[in-house]
């Protein structure tokens, strides 16, 4: 159970920034896709979901990190799930108290934060091995990355599907909204399009790195 001290990460800016870009939970690791697709039909919902998930992620990571030497290895997944479920229950009641409208819009997906693999993944892969401070910073970064991904989907879908952003109309009255974008297929399409964009950027960078004479890696 005792961890070697050198497996613990030193606190660097990268601890935070990694979650935003390099290891973005949604765009790079493809985790937690269900809320990403389901509640991003408007920007407000996306933001609320992002913040709620970040709260649960940070709190449960902290608690897991605190208890890391007391949780027996055999029952760790079950213990993590119970910890996560506790915080989700808190968030669930809090949102109900703050805004019933938002609660209705997010529906069952608040309670489904329990089943968000980003959180369990962080608990298992990071918080259970690291010190409190690094865990706090890292989970904040991951939460920010998750919120960023939700927002980038939410804004695109709201602008295209509804012609508005944060409820403010963007286009002249004769704009025909692409209704399909706020319906389920739109979620898949927009996320697919973001991934295409990132793939394209990555490929372009790789090509530049190999230089004009170098043979590029992809044979197609």
């Amino acid at each position: 159970m005792a961890e070697l001290p050198n497996t613990e990460e030193r606190l660097t800016p990268d601890t935070f920034l990694r979650g935003l870009w390099e290891e973005n939970p949604v765009f790079v690791m493809l985790l937690g896709m269900c809320p990403v697709l389901a509640v991003t039909s408007t920007t407000v919902n996306a933001l609320a979901m992002g913040l709620a998930t970040t709260f649960v992620l940070v709190c449960s990571s902290l608690l897991v990190s605190l208890l890391r030497n007391w949780i027996p290895k055999q029952v760790r997944i079950a213990s993590y799930i119970v910890i996560i479920a506790t915080f989700v229950t808190i968030v669930d009641y809090a949102i109900q108290a703050i805004s019933l409208e938002l609660y209705a819009a997010l529906g069952a997906f608040i309670q489904l934060i329990v089943a968000n693999c980003v959180i369990l993944g962080r608990a298992e892969a990071y918080a259970s091995k690291q010190k409190l401070m690094t865990t706090l910073v890292n989970s904040l970064g991951m939460g920010a990355g998750f919120t960023l991904a939700l927002l980038s989907l939410g804004t695109v879908r709201e602008i295209l599907g509804n012609g508005t952003i944060l409820g403010i109309s963007l286009f002249p009255a004769d704009f025909q909204p692409w209704i399909v974008m706020i319906l389920p297929p739109g979620g898949f399409f927009v996320l697919g399009a973001w991934l295409l964009l990132f793939n394209w950027l990555r490929l372009r960078k790789e090509r530049k790195a190999t230089g004009p004479i170098g043979v590029t890696a992809d044979a197609r």
Binding site: L30, V180, P184, P185, G186, G187, F188, F189, L191, G192, L195, L196, N199, W200, L203, D218, R220
Partner: peptide, 20 residues
């Protein structure tokens, strides 16, 4: 398929069509 759309991006597009 074009190299840019390999992997998850293509799967998501497919899922979108199925959902449609």
């Amino acid at each position: 398929v074009p190299s840019v759309s390999q992997g998850a991006a293509m799967s998501l597009m497919l899922a979108g069509l199925l959902s449609l």
